[in-house]
Write a protein that binds this DNA or RNA. Structure first.
Lengths: 342, 342
DNA sequence: TTGTATGCGTTATCAA
DNA sequence: TTGATAACGCATACAA
């Protein structure tokens, strides 16, 4: 009986055609130097002739390693996370790993399900953004014994396995800069703070710097909108509708700042003359909008490299390293300026 | 002897603890309705107690389906591709599929290696961007019998399995609009055209619309730079250095247009008064830069949905559908205006 | 250096 | 409805 669907050739088929054992054929694939040239060539010829393609799933089962690393992001549509994936992919891809990317769209609960799905699917390691996760995530990770790394945030980081930067310190620097420019009336625009220690740290950093200057920020001056360009627009509208406007609008992401900037243009609010606007992340587009965005450079590239390297170490059975804090820096552009004289 | 590493519990362990056979335990996982309630509960309790997590790789091997779909992109750092991934992930994720995303960074040859790696790793289906691929890609796909879909381009599309839009027609519309605004001197700014039928179709569309108006574009007026913001900046510099400047700069992506716009600002070239600049894609940021970008809306969301749906059909053994062309539309914003009177 | 045999953790087939 | 048992395709320890 002829099989209806032409089954893809397996290593057994290759071995048979080459006239060697399955074991030898397998060795040719994984450790070619451990096999005589003659047999190697026979196997390679047979593989070529049959169009043999190794079955990664069988391989993963036998080796108990899938060569896949999971990455759970807030969203892939913010370029700052896309860049992170880009770097990670290059670094881990170079060592033969594939990336399984998932995004929870800032849904705290959704993240639990994504992590579980990734573990079930059979990843070898997991990269998480941030350190504030549902206890269920931690439990899953602990139970599975899966190597995992946290990223982005060193503000509330565990002692190990986190590579990030100080969102709080960065934001302090930003606000201090604005204070030095003479600003005294501030508003802060952020996405939701719940389950997001990065946003919290950024807002806290701003608050601290202001407090040190004797400025107390009112609850109303912290506007919460979605982490997006549209959220930025909305936020600016809210603030513009106020009686006494701030002279500086501190946004917790470049995306929100870009939206706020666009809306300021639309409303005829001059930036930075009537209102200074600042961002956070330093995504590519930040320098291309106008006025170019004064922002914090988040060290995404370096963070991605470090996370990738550490993940590779952990995947090879290496021990956890202490958490690492990468410096950020303020990028002065034109969206923030000296406060206008009365 | 005690095993040194605490092996993760398997379905056998669960079955043993529950006092049922492996087969029954397996059934509880996959088709719970085909098992008596009593045994089901026993198995579920045992699984819970042991913290059982199914092994996806074993599952993939046994079922001969990995529940993973590959996506090969030019780059993840262009928001237009990130959005595509976002939509695809939602659609396929809803049906339990994982996405294996790879980017070739516009390296034609690199794509071959990526596709091969994905096939080896064991994907169930593959989504490709564009239709112009190395013959080796086609060969791999044909040999593996893997369901695969093309996207983005209906200009040189195969009769089946492609979901895209007409880059050429869209660009014709754009240039016609500029002609209607009175422009007669054009420059075109694009990334490399080799192995990229989308870029080619966009340039061709522009050329055709110009030709129809009796305008012949000189080779020098087509500037090639990387597909990026920086590429856009460079491109504008090249054009600005020319003796006789164009009044309209047609860019083949929003990213390049944003870069060109930024550089125009930097050089003191008024947009649109001294130079109209147009983009293509309509990424989120296009409406937030200033002046807001006149561009072509590429139907990424709908394309992603269609691709996802079709992929699901193909994954279930369904037959290929004829290729689909989704309409685009011109988005008139402020970066393009009437040509200045002499 | 090569072959043999077993295991990886499931699903699926077939009797019972 | 359940249980035994054979795939699934490969890696690997061990023997030859």
């Amino acid at each position: 009986m002829i099989p209806d669907r032409p089954r893809r050739p397996t290593l057994s088929d290759v071995a048979r055609l080459a006239g060697v054992s399955l074991g030898s054929a397998s060795r040719v694939m994984s450790e070619p130097e451990a096999v005589r040239q003659r047999t190697r060539e026979a196997v390679e010829a047979a593989a070529e002739q049959l169009g043999y393609v190794p079955n990664g799933n069988a391989r993963a089962l036998a080796m108990r390693r899938s060569m896949m690393v999971g990455v759970v992001l807030p969203t892939i549509t913010n370029p700052v996370f896309a860049s992170f994936v880009h770097v990670l992919q290059r670094r881990l891809g170079a060592e033969g790993y594939h990336l399984l990317v998932q995004a929870h769209e800032y849904d705290h609960q959704a993240e639990v399900a994504l992590v579980e799905r990734l573990i079930r699917r059979g990843i070898d390691g997991l990269v998480l953004v941030g350190t504030d996760h549902d206890p269920a995530v931690t439990a899953l990770l602990a139970r599975s014994g899966l190597p995992h790394l946290f990223s982005w945030s060193s503000d509330e980081a565990p002692a190990q396995d986190c590579v990030g930067f100080s969102n709080r310190q960065a934001m302090r620097e930003m606000v201090q800069y604005l204070l030095d420019l003479g600003h005294r009336r501030f508003a802060i625009l952020s996405g939701a703070l719940a389950h997001n220690e990065r946003a919290r740290a950024r807002v806290e950093g701003a608050r601290e710097a202001l407090a040190a200057a004797g400025i107390v920020i009112a609850p109303d001056d912290i506007v919460i909108q979605p982490f997006s360009i549209e959220g930025g627009r909305q936020g600016l509208r809210v603030i513009a509708a106020r009686g006494e406007r701030p002279t500086a609008l501190v946004c917790t992401t470049d995306l929100m700042a870009a939206g706020a900037l666009a809306e300021a243009h639309a409303l005829g609010i001059a930036v930075p003359d009537a209102l200074s606007i600042t961002g956070f992340d330093d995504i590519d587009i930040a320098s291309a909008i106008s006025p170019p965005l004064t922002t914090i450079h988040a060290p995404i590239r370096e963070m991605g490299e470090r996370v990738g390297e550490r993940m590779l170490v952990r995947l090879k059975g290496g021990a956890p390293d202490p958490s690492l804090t990468i410096p950020t820096h303020l990028v002065r552009r034109q969206s923030a300026g000296v406060v206008a004289k009365k």
